[in-house]
Design a protein around this nucleic acid. Structure first.
Length: 137
DNA sequence: ACATTGACTTGTT
DNA sequence: CAACAAGCCAATG
């Protein structure tokens, strides 16, 4: 079931600024499609920032994906942890918190096994939006 | 309202 | 193989 991201755009906001107090993603021009794509990544599967960018119609702008995810509030329904960098590794963030470790843990909990060097084989876990769900190459 | 920074990826030098 | 620049948008001071 496609659980679309519920973007509660506060009605009558006039300015409609970022109202991220509702655990909902920010409604930006580029953020929305990004969240929509990330929300479609099946459990136990991962996608790279660049991949999400392409699927969101922002080919070449992997950075925006990272920025969008960074703007996500805590408790969001967007599975941000399923997005890793091109090396198959969880990108460390400036917060200085052990979130990259948490992300890795969340993925392992979904059945994703990391290699000994801390990276995961993308050729094996990379989400294939064209393939049917549950199908593994 | 302007300047700076930030979860990246790819191509050149 | 390593380092650097470009491309892009939003949040923060």
């Amino acid at each position: 079931m496609t659980r679309a991201v519920r973007v509660s755009q506060a009605p009558g906001t006039g300015r409609g600024r970022r109202d991220q107090s509702s655990a909902g993603p920010v409604s930006g021009r580029t953020h929305s499609p990004i969240y929509a794509v990330v929300a479609r990544i099946p459990r136990g599967r991962v996608a790279t920032y660049g991949q999400v960018a392409v699927l969101a119609g922002l080919a070449g702008q992997a950075r925006l994906v990272g920025y969008a995810l960074h703007a996500l509030p805590e408790g969001t329904r967007v599975p941000w942890h399923r997005v890793v960098n091109a090396e198959g590794r969880t990108s460390p963030r400036s917060d200085g918190m052990g979130h990259e470790r948490l992300q890795q843990l969340m993925l392992e909990r979904e059945g994703v096994r990391f290699s000994r060097d801390g990276a995961l084989p993308l050729s094996r876990y990379r989400w294939n939006p064209r393939g049917r769900p549950g199908e593994e190459p």
